[in-house]
């Protein structure tokens, strides 16, 4: 089902917040924000803010979860009660469980886990403020936190959402666009390997449109990738 609505989201080539269709919101990234964690990060895209922490690798309990020849990834995505308009009731939700799973899968092909038999690597992401594209923001936060934790990785992982409103391809959807676009497509990929590790879609698109969105996400994701690199290296320039 298309989610076409009456709200005008784009006018004269400008979106409601003044952005051009392919423009990404103002972003901010930091690492090492949680002293207790082995790795951590803070990532903001517009008003969407994710804080991620990585704990481990550490011996996994209960024992039946252990794999004798590799480590496993465990992930939890959670929204703080005050992160959105209507208070989120604490506790698990079906939505949260699914997002946790796709974030975890976004890192399965990325981490070298064979050095860590019987262990678990925990990735925790808290959305402390939500305004659309929370899962891809979480992916960027997790990528930085894992690199900051010194976990061996094939590549960093970049997250960016694409979508369509009024026949126009847009990137980095905010909350209003998320709810009222004709389609939205969260994507995560390895920027050097050009491999996609998270891909979801809802709404209606033609083959061509979808191809176009993915192409634009991967091209403009380069900006997000550069920001990740800069954030990781900056920590070590005095």
């Amino acid at each position: 089902m298309g989610k076409k609505s009456d709200i005008v989201l784009i006018e004269n080539g400008k979106r409601l917040d003044g952005r051009k269709p392919l423009e990404i919101r103002d972003t901010e990234m930091k690492v090492g924000v949680i002293p207790n964690a082995n790795g951590s990060s803070y990532v903001r895209f517009g008003k969407t803010i994710a804080i991620a922490a990585v704990y481990g690798p550490k011996l996994l309990y209960p024992k039946h979860l252990q794999e004798s020849d590799r480590g496993i990834i465990q992930c939890r995505y959670n929204m703080a009660p005050f992160s959105v308009d209507e208070r989120v009731r604490p506790g698990t939700s079906r939505r949260g469980t699914e997002i946790s799973k796709v974030i975890k899968l976004a890192f399965e092909p990325v981490l070298f886990l064979e050095n860590y038999p019987k262990t678990g690597i925990d990735i925790y992401v808290e959305i402390i403020q939500a305004d659309g594209s929370t899962r891809v923001t979480s992916v960027n936060a997790a990528s930085l936190a894992l690199a900051n934790a010194g976990i061996p990785m094939r590549d960093l992982v970049v997250g960016l959402s694409g979508g369509k409103i009024s026949d126009t391809i847009i990137l980095d959807l905010d909350g209003k666009e998320d709810n009222n676009s004709e389609a939205d497509v969260p994507v995560a990929f390895m920027p050097n390997k050009k491999e996609i590790t998270l891909l979801q879609m809802d709404g209606q698109l033609t083959n061509e449109e979808l191809k176009d969105i993915i192409k634009n996400v991967m091209k403009n994701g380069e900006i997000v990738y550069k920001k990740q690199i800069e954030t990781l290296k900056k920590r070590y320039d005095e």
């Binding site: 949680i34 964690a37 704990y55 925990d122 925790y124 808290e126």
Partner: peptide
């Protein structure tokens, strides 16, 4: 109050 697991290694979801 939520002891988010990001905050300490002993905090569990």
């Amino acid at each position: 109050a939520e002891f988010s697991p990001i905050a300490h290694k002993d905090f569990e979801p």
